[in-house]
Amino acid sequence: MRFPTYEQMEKLLQQPVRRITEYRRNWLVQTNQQTWVAKRMQSSTKLRWLLSIDSELRSRGFTAMPPIRSDLKHWILTPWIEGKTCQYTNLHEVKKVIRVLATFHRTGRHLQTPPIKGAAFLLTHRLYDRLVQFYQILKERDTIPGEVGELLRTYGSEFYQHGLNVWEKLQSLPLDELNWREYQWHFLAHRDLASHNWLIDQAGKVWLIDFETADYDCQLSDVWQITTRILSSNGWNAQVCKQIFSTYEAIRPLNSLEKTIIYILFSFPNEFFRECIGIIKKKRGYRPENTLPYLKRIIQDQANWREFLKQLPTW
């Protein structure tokens, strides 16, 4: 990660910079008037694409993302927001972020900004890639040391079979067609709806941040991702799921195909796959002290998960 220079930041902000400090893989840039979060983008093409998307969303009335300053080459600066990250166990906060997500999806349809040239890594590609990556580490489970190796040897095959069953069920549905249609029609998805990407400021306003993963894609992938994470934090409570859907659909209704696909996706053990892959491949952000307890909680929650899945056909 390249350090932002005082000269770069002062030129960009048009004011003196007092201090620059490292902050969560990014940088805090302090001036006499304000503190900014500076993030270096690896691709200037993606940076300019995000700026165009940001401009379109604002012109359509969606302003739940911090304003951006940029040099159009490497750096994105956004104001530091005094507040806290969303707690997915707090259902009052959950409803607020779901309303913002639904508005983001409704606003981010049929945008004019062209997609970035190159291969699109869409929902169907991501599902298949995650299943394959997990299978690859599962084959090596006898050589993986420590607790994560024990968890894989004990539970890995069962979770993999769940994922494989989901993939086979999805092949009978027009998910590929839906995915490509929303890509071609420029439907925007965030694609990284971890709780730390929602900020709630001191006035109670919700902010959606960190758009580096955003792209044109199936919007239901966001709905599935955030719902799964919220349900995992709430013991797979079916009533919580109903609240999420009713809140979302009050703004952006889902059609019957989207609901069918999401209900099937609930059986895909995405969280278990992602955490195992992350810790075994030593990806950034996956530390044993955090990842192992989470994996154990996912395993302990299996009974609640199965009971939740049984209730889905009655909705």
Rank of each mutant, 00 (worst) to 15 (best):
R2G: 09
F3N: 07
P4H: 00
Y6F: 12
Y6A: 01
M9E: 03
E10M: 02
K11E: 09
L12P: 07
Q15I: 05
Q15T: 12
V17M: 02
R19Q: 15
R19C: 12
I20H: 04
I20L: 02
E22H: 11
R24C: 03
L28G: 00
L28K: 06
L28T: 03
T31R: 09
Q33K: 13
Q34C: 03
K46S: 04
L50I: 09
L51A: 03
L51T: 03
S52F: 09
S55R: 15
S59L: 12
F62S: 06
P67A: 04
P67H: 01
I68H: 14
K73T: 07
P79T: 01
P79E: 01
G83K: 01
K84C: 04
Q87Y: 13
Q87K: 14
Y88H: 07
T89C: 05
N90I: 04
N90W: 09
L91D: 05
E93N: 04
K95V: 03
I98K: 02
R99S: 10
L101Q: 08
L101F: 08
L101M: 12
G108Q: 07
H110T: 10
P115Y: 07
I116P: 02
G118T: 14
A119K: 14
F121S: 00
L127F: 02
V132S: 05
Y135C: 02
K139L: 13
R141F: 01
D142W: 01
T143F: 06
T143C: 06
I144E: 02
G149C: 00
E150C: 10
L152I: 05
R153L: 02
W167H: 03
K169R: 14
S172G: 07
S172I: 09
L175T: 01
R181N: 13
R181K: 10
R181F: 08
R181S: 10
Y183E: 03
F187S: 05
F187M: 04
H190F: 02
H190M: 09
L193I: 11
W198S: 02
D201T: 15
Q202F: 14
A203V: 08
A203K: 15
W207D: 00
I209Q: 01
I209K: 00
T213G: 07
D215T: 14
Y216E: 06
S221F: 07
D222W: 10
V223G: 06
W224T: 04
R229P: 02
S233V: 04
N234Y: 07
G235W: 10
I244H: 09
F245V: 12
S246D: 14
I251C: 03
R252T: 09
P253N: 06
T260K: 10
I262N: 08
K281F: 15
K281E: 15
K283M: 14
T291M: 11
T291G: 04
L292Q: 08
R297C: 02
D301Q: 14
N304F: 11
R306D: 15
F308Y: 09
L312K: 05
T314A: 14
